[in-house]
Amino acid sequence: MIGLKMAFAAVQISAGLSAIGARLRAVADGERPATHSELHTLRTVQDDLSRAFARLTDVMCPELILFMLSGLLQLIALVMLTIGSVQSGTAGNHAASIVSYALGAAVAVALPCELSQLVLSAVGETRDLLLRPRWQRPELFQLLCLFRETVGRDLTALGDLGLFRLQRSTLLALAATVLTYVIVLFQFYITSPTGDGADLSQQQNWTASPANRTDG
């Protein structure tokens, strides 16, 4: 339910922001003249849409954090189950569990980040359009400055949940965290008394020890 609510809101908001970008592109390309009233309306709508998305993430912040935490745990379970089943040759028996973990991790971790990135990309497109040289017009200077400040604020604040930010780079950070976790577990496994690496090391030490040799 959390993913569906956020998906619906994010798609609608990003569609509105993209429409603003399309109108700004038409003005910047010279297809239509830039008027003070139109730019003021676009800035107001931009601000309203951004505030709506910010309020959405603020209200859903506790739910989103727990939702993504469950997805991260599913991602860890997916990696460990996949590695263990491949090593034991039972990947076919655990195929259903692997698919279930993969879908759960994708919905809980990747979906919120991609939806927030969709909104941020639309805001970034508006920022790029406002930075075009064609906008350097004295009569629109003050309004354009306010528009750029609004867009700049959105690029730095949207999707922020306090502990982390919903954006595509968060996926890379989570993947690095899981990889680090798996590497540490394998190190414990190799050096543990029941690990194959430890058994091999103990066997070599026992063989090389003079006390364990016989003169025959």
Score class of each variant (00 low, 15 high):
R51M: 06
A52F: 05
R55M: 13
L56V: 02
L56K: 01
D58F: 08
V59L: 14
M60I: 02
M60K: 09
M60F: 08
E63A: 09
L64R: 00
L64Q: 02
L66R: 12
F67H: 14
G71I: 04
L72T: 10
L72M: 11
L73I: 03
L73S: 08
Q74M: 14
I76S: 05
A77Y: 06
L78Y: 14
V79A: 13
L81W: 04
T82H: 15
G84P: 04
A91K: 07
A91C: 05
G92Y: 00
N93S: 12
H94P: 03
H94Y: 15
A95E: 11
A96T: 06
A96R: 06
I98S: 02
V99A: 13
Y101Q: 11
A102W: 06
G104E: 12
G104V: 07
A105S: 15
V107R: 11
L111V: 15
L111K: 07
E114S: 15
E114V: 15
Q117G: 07
Q117C: 02
L118A: 08
L120S: 05
G124R: 03
E125D: 09
E125Y: 01
T126M: 10
T126C: 09
T126Q: 09
R127Y: 10
D128T: 04
L130M: 11
R132N: 02
R132A: 09
P133A: 06
Q136M: 01
R137P: 01
P138I: 04
P138G: 05
E139F: 09
E139Q: 12
C145I: 02
L146G: 14
F147Q: 03
R148C: 07
